[in-house]
Design a binder for these strands. Structure first.
Lengths: 348, 348
DNA sequence: CGTCACATGGCAACCGGTTGCCAAAATTTG
DNA sequence: CAAATTTTGGCAACCGGTTGCCATGTGACG
């Protein structure tokens, strides 16, 4: 009978290859990571032997020597939220392109959890991309002292970030409503810690003022479908003609409740969301919403981070760092949940 | 003027701590990773000094010595697909609990890409969880020789996996249809490489046979909403009274097209999906679909992998390994897209 | 009180690469 | 053709931990 197979193949190390190729380990090392430093034919030879032995340098060992792990972390509040899926996708693609490994962390919408995550991962990665961070500014600054850091949809003075153009986006929304004869609208606010939530409200209010509409804010609501009913009911008693929700999930929750209560959208009430998530096009009625370029945001953030972690990059110098806030355009996608203001206000 | 702040804080190493605590580095090491091996009060002292210095062991260095990186990779075909979000969530949670770091890879639905990913990541992680792998059996076996591996919704003889109970699930679906008087149904097939697609069809066909229904398979279709129209049109010309789609995304795409064409669901045609993704409850009409426990699947897979990577674990031995296929229950969620069979077949 | 087992700490080798420095060899220059 | 350079390879230290082994100290036991 044949003996049992060996547990797990022992991988070739740099020494194995060096011996087999008749050179010193340092030469093998350079053949892989510093091609200019070794003779062309020697290099070919080494590479060939390495290939034959199935050798590839151990990233861990390499990391120990160089101090660079070749790994970046992406932290999101909730991976389950379809809104973040695009960011992850873009980040993953950019990371693969930059030959980086992407670690993912879910902070479960909790600032404390987020901080713990960053602390735990800090030693294992070269840097962070934090999506819609819920941490206070101060904590983020501290984190940035220990690791390169790029924020997405969050801005903190001095830190690098990629953000959606909410100023333009909110103006598009308000313009859209105004052009349909709405004289006022309600904003259903999200969590207090949400930076983009704050930006949205600021933008909406500003645009409203400029266009002569009046804006009221309700909430805060947890941005889940479960919050829909409460928000919708509050809306109806207020007699609003238009509502802008903190995000699509909440908007869809509201839509469902409105349908339940027999309120016709958009005839009696116009509903607008943020994010253009999966589902926004097939909910009932299809949702008018502000689309962000999430995939691009994720990609850019990782690219920026990659640049930051490349040797030679210095952290926030006292002199002005190179314009560390990148703004990505947003676009209003008009579907069927918004339309002309009703003649009279809604009475449920 | 003050000098510019030092670039990045230099972190404390084990030696620093050892000196500050007046012990040898090995003692510090053991204080952290082998508590029983060091005196209680010494340990307290070391830990206290370490805390004061802000020291924590470098995972990279640790990995080099022990050969364990404390990192596992999760590979999914497409992170953007809401179906996978649950798996990622569960995996992330389980990883955090096991103090593991989760690396994520997106294979973009491509078997080749998937193989490359596994090869690239192989050196950097302790093991893999591969979700709905598109790789051929042989490639998976080869991968399993190099790294511990757990499959989700894919079974390969000899390899460990976590799969949904499609046999029961499909039976639930067919029973549901039969009880509503349907005598036949169409299955809209997904990609040929999809193992779960194959299982679904096998299950449906078997159940159909047992319950005396006739089942026909259309496709394959790419499981995106964009495939909806083609699938729906094919359906209508066939005069089917019920259709089971490869997954919810496809089902929702079909639903949209049907609505466009004025076909009433479920009065004229019943539609059933798989996955119960985000959106299945608010599409129009809300979709009857087979729910899997994706979060649990992701969690279990990581837990299983963690057990496999723990020291002492041996890879697939020639003797029967411990029941390496774990089956997770499925449950039919009946909503409003399915109902009694129409008296006559549909004529569009 | 002698012997022995056990608890505890330190030494040093090791994990698998990278890199500064030196020297031999090859090439250029005067 | 000698001197000055440049190219190329090797040596050895180092990155920051872990761990096998040995030495010492301590308490238990006969």
């Amino acid at each position: 009978m044949s003996p049992p197979p060996p547990p797990r193949k022992r991988r070739a190390t740099i020494t194995t290859v060096a011996e087999a190729a008749g050179v010193a380990p340092s030469t093998v090392s350079r053949a892989f990571s510093n091609p200019g430093r070794v003779n062309h034919v020697t290099r070919e030879h080494v590479l060939e032997v390495a290939a034959r032995l199935g050798y590839s340098p151990d990233p861990t060992a390499r990391a120990l020597g160089t101090g660079r792990t070749g790994t970046v972390a992406l932290v999101v509040p909730d991976i389950t939220n379809p809104y973040f899926a695009g960011v992850v996708k873009g980040a993953e693609r950019a990371a693969a392109e930059a030959r980086l490994t992407l670690v993912i962390g879910d902070s479960q919408e909790s600032p404390a959890q987020e901080e713990r995550l960053v602390e735990r991962l800090g030693r294992a990665v070269d840097g962070f991309v934090i999506m819609a961070s819920r941490m206070p500014d101060e904590a983020l600054r501290r984190a940035a002292e220990l690791n390169p850091l790029v924020l997405v949809n969050r801005a903190v003075p001095g830190l690098t970030s990629v953000v959606a153009d909410f100023a333009s986006g909110t103006r598009q929304i308000v313009t859209h409503l105004a052009s349909h004869g709405h004289r006022s609208f309600v904003f259903l606010g999200g969590p207090a810690e949400s930076w983009s939530g704050a930006q949205r409200w600021i933008g909406l209010r500003t645009a409203a003022e400029e266009l002569g509409l009046s804006a009221t804010r309700f909430g805060p609501y947890t941005p889940t479908m479960a919050s829909g009913p409460a928000a919708a009911d509050a809306l109806l008693t207020s007699g609003a003609t238009a509502v802008v929700a903190h995000n699509d999930v909440l908007a869809i929750g509201v839509l469902r409740r409105l349908e339940e209560r027999g309120v016709r959208v958009p005839e009696q009430l116009s509903v607008v969301g943020f994010d253009d998530i999966f589902g926004a096009d097939f909910c009932h009625p299809p949702l008018t919403t502000l689309a962000e370029r999430t995939t691009e945001a994720g990609g850019r953030a990782v690219e920026t981070l990659a640049a930051l972690t490349r040797p030679g990059a210095v952290p926030a110098s006292p002199e002005a760092p190179p314009a560390p806030v990148r703004v990505l355009p947003t676009q209003l996608v008009v579907r069927h949940s918004s339309g002309p203001a009703p003649r009279r206000e809604v009475t449920p």
